[in-house]
Simulated scan of single mutants.
Amino acid sequence: MHIDGACQCGKITYDAEVDPQVVAICHCTDCQRLTGTAYRVTVSAQRSRFHITSGEPKLYVKSADNGRRRLQFFCSDCGSPIYTTGEDEDAEQVGIRLGTVNQRQELKPRSQSWCSSSLAWTQNLTGLPGRPGD
């Protein structure tokens, strides 16, 4: 599936080819802190199928508990997380942050990881009152 997207301010844009079956939620505490919310949703793409079309994202390197480094790319103006990748064999995959994807309504999460770190209330939001806008 072809997707495109941008950060909140529009400075960074990209396009990619993704497999819509590879959309995942991560509940790890790193993702909670990096997003400032309860979890992160990512769609994966082959590095060769992901292209920045405008702007230059800023890089933050996060070293995991296992010693592997994750390269976190974000907009230096608005702070939107754009994508992540790794080093060596981990560099072949890019994890695109779903909130920046223009076609995000078409991409449904198919798996979750680090559920031991999940916040209990994230598992069932259907009972919360809601409004169509604010």
Rank of each mutant, 00 (worst) to 15 (best):
Q46N: 14
Q93R: 15
D90C: 09
H27Q: 00
T13W: 13
T35I: 01
V23N: 03
W121F: 14
I52G: 09
I25T: 05
L119W: 03
R69L: 13
H2T: 05
P20S: 00
G127C: 02
A91E: 15
Y39N: 01
C31G: 08
Q46P: 01
I12H: 12
A24H: 04
S117R: 05
P132G: 03
L98I: 06
L125W: 06
L125C: 11
E92L: 07
C75T: 02
G133H: 13
Q112E: 15
V23T: 02
R110H: 12
M1P: 02
D4V: 08
Q93T: 15
G10M: 10
H2M: 13
Q72P: 03
D15I: 04
C75I: 01
F73D: 03
A45G: 12
T84I: 01
G95P: 00
H51M: 15
P20R: 10
R49L: 15
G67R: 00
P20Y: 00
G95N: 06
Q21W: 04
S117K: 07
Q72R: 10
H51D: 15
E106W: 06
V61Q: 06
Q21F: 07
I12W: 02
R49Q: 15
T85F: 00
T85H: 02
Q123P: 01
S118Q: 02
Q8T: 13
W121E: 13
S111E: 08
F50H: 10
T53C: 12
T53L: 09
K62P: 03
L71D: 06
N124V: 10
K108H: 15
L59E: 09
P57A: 01
R70N: 02
G127I: 01
L59P: 01
C115K: 09
R69A: 12
W114G: 07
G86C: 11
A38W: 11
A120I: 04
S113L: 12
T37D: 07
S54L: 02
S80N: 03
F50Y: 12
Q21S: 15
C31S: 08
Q72C: 05
L119V: 15
S116M: 13
R131Y: 14
D90T: 00
Q21K: 15
A64Q: 07
T122I: 06
R104W: 11
Y14K: 06
W121Q: 12
Q123D: 14
G36L: 08
E106P: 04
K58A: 14
S48N: 11
R110S: 15
T13P: 11
A6T: 11
I25H: 02
T84S: 13
Y14L: 04
Q32Y: 10
S76M: 08
R104T: 11
R70T: 14
K62D: 14
I25C: 06
